[in-house]
Structures are given as structure tokens and as C-alpha cells.
Design a protein around this nucleic acid. Structure first.
Length: 287
DNA sequence: AAGAGGCCCTGATAGC
DNA sequence: TGCTATCAGGGCCTCT
């Protein structure tokens, strides 16, 4: 589900609700996530105060008062729900999907506070939680990944160094978290459309203008998605409504056979599987 | 080293 | 109605 903008939206809403709260109890209903939740996980978080919730790439970072950190990755299908302890698990005040109900199945982890609980739900279990005992450990983990598009390190020099001579296509690089962090399958297509670059283009054939456009539009597309509350493309257990609006502004993603939205272009959007992921692009505009 | 492909998992939907 | 196949917003691992 979530790429950087969606995780950012979750972070913002979550931060308002659980900042400063003390974790009274952790319930792990299913340890069998992408990464197995270790036995000692609950103990490590017990009675810890949450300083704030931050984010790196697609990771939520729950910062705890003793300088330890709990990371949450939502995988493809993860959602978070914040519900009052009084509401009998029926009403969800905060979730990315603005779902009025807590899902019935796949509620794997409960972070329980005095008045509310924060629940991690993930049907496919591609998501996971990690615990780091201090900032050094956290930074070591984060350091394995490439810069976010917003980072000053995501610049022309970096592109030259990383992409020159590379055979792999650019779509693949945008999805490669070691190259750039936070972009997923939707925004990769959108960024390439804005940059007028065909997703098949081998990285080594990109020119200076391509680099500049990719740097610019990676930032812009993600920023605009955040402004619109992220994107919601599939509904969640038939519940209605969502807080994401950016899907209404997709230029290519999910627009197979529809007209290219560039004003003078007569092309239609093509859907093609590239490296096992669907890609959407205009053959006329994106050369 | 770099790149291609398989695989982890459940659920929704399309087609028969 | 109920089967099967296909496809999903991610990313790691293995093999060549």
C-alpha cells in the first residue's frame, strides 16, 4: 500500500494522537510477520514514553524516551488504526483509509495506552516491526538505504556516479531503495511521465536533462501527493471514504488505454509489466 | 558486481 | 454457486 507520501500522512496523524503517551501494554497476536517479532519485543517497549513519531522512507519511527526506537514498515497491505479503549474496537479515529471500522482479521500488534490503542493490521504480512536500542543502531539500519528524494544527497553528482554505465532500466532504479528511498510503483510511473522518460530506458542512456527532471519531479510528485493526503487506490474491506486524494491526479497509473493528459499528445497510456511490476506510460511523450 | 527472477502472503476480481 | 487464475501500493534472497 504505502509509499513515502502515505507513510508521511500516517506519521502526521499518528503523531498528534500518541505523542507523549506511555505504552501500558503491547499485545502481539501474530509474530509471523515478514520479519518475525522477537519474543522480547513486548518487554522492550513496556512502560516507555513516546517522544514522537517520525519517518524515514517508508518506515514509521516511534521514538522512545530512553533513546530506543521502534520501526514499523507497512509492506503492501499494512494499515494502522487508532481507537479509543472505550469504543469496543468498533470505531477507528485515525487510519490512512479513514475506515470507520477496525478490520476484523489481521490485527497483529496492539500498542495499548491509557485511553487509546494503536493497532497494526496487515493481511499480507509483508510489513514488520523492528526495535533498535539506540540511535547508533537505528542510523546503521537507515544508512543501508539511499537518500530520499528530498535529501541534498539526491543530486546530479549522485546520479552521475550511480547511474553511468548501468544497464538496468530507470524504472527499476526508482524502485530500488538502495538508490533512492521512498518511491514505490505508483510514484515511479508518475515521476517518469513528468520527466518524459520511457521506463525501459537504460540508466546509462540518460542525459543531463533527464537527471535534472528526475531529481525535480521525484521531489514534486511526492510533495504534491503529501499535500493531497496521499493516494488510495483500492478500498479497504468495502468501507467507504478515504483521506487520500492524490489518486485523482494520477497522470498514468491505472490509466491504461486512456488518453495521454499532455495537452498536445494524441497517445494513449500503455500498461506493461517491467521487472514483474506493472508500469504505465505514454509511448509518445516518454522517449 | 550487476541484473534477472522467484518468493513471501491474503484478498479482490474476472472469467469460465 | 463455485472453482481457477491473475493481480495488488514491497523488498529480500539466490542464482548466474
Amino acid at each position: 500500500m504505502p509509499e513515502l507520501p502515505e507513510v508521511e500522512i500516517v506519521k502526521q496523524s499518528l503523531n498528534k494522537k500518541i505523542k507523549g503517551k506511555i505504552i501500558n501494554k503491547i499485545l502481539v497476536k501474530n509474530r509471523n510477520l515478514r520479519v518475525r517479532v522477537p519474543k522480547g519485543f513486548e518487554k522492550k517497549l513496556f512502560l516507555k514514553k513516546i517522544i514522537k513519531v517520525s519517518r524515514f522512507s517508508k518506515y514509521l519511527i516511534i521514538e522512545l524516551k530512553d533513546d530506543s526506537y521502534c520501526l514499523l514498515h507497512l509492506g503492501m497491505s499494512g494499515t494502522v488504526h487508532l481507537i479509543s479503549n472505550k469504543t469496543n474496537n468498533k470505531i477507528s479515529n485515525t487510519s490512512f483509509y479513514n475506515s470507520p471500522y477496525l478490520p476484523v482479521k489481521h490485527n497483529h500488534i496492539f500498542f495499548i495506552f491509557k485511553k487509546v490503542k494503536f493497532i497494526y493490521n496487515d493481511p499480507r504480512r509483508f510489513g514488520y516491526v523492528l526495535y533498535f536500542k539506540n540511535k547508533k543502531e537505528l542510523n546503521k539500519f537507515i544508512g543501508r538505504y539511499g537518500p530520499e528524494p528530498f535529501s541534498p544527497d539526491f543530486n546530479l553528482n549522485y546520479f552521475r556516479k550511480y547511474l553511468a554505465n548501468k544497464e538496468k532500466n530507470i524504472k527499476n532504479f526508482l524502485l530500488d531503495q538502495n538508490f533512492v528511498s521512498g518511491i514505490g510503483n505508483i510514484y515511479a510511473s508518475e515521476i517518469l511521465f513528468k520527466s518524459k522518460i520511457n521506463p525501459h530506458t537504460k540508466a546509462k542512456y540518460l542525459n543531463l536533462k533527464n537527471y535534472k527532471d528526475l531529481i525535480l519531479y521525484s521531489k514534486l510528485v511526492l510533495e504534491n501527493a503529501i499535500k493531497d493526503g496521499g493516494s488510495t487506490i483500492r478500498d479497504f474491506r468495502n468501507t467507504s471514504g478515504n483521506i487520500g486524494k492524490f489518486q485523482k491526479k494520477f497522470k498514468v497509473y491505472g490509466r491504461e488505454n486512456k488518453k495521454c493528459l499532455n495537452s498536445k499528445c494524441k497517445g494513449r497510456i500503455i500498461k506493461k509489466i517491467i521487472s514483474n511490476r506493472s508500469s504505465f506510460f505514454c509511448n509518445f511523450c516518454q522517449k
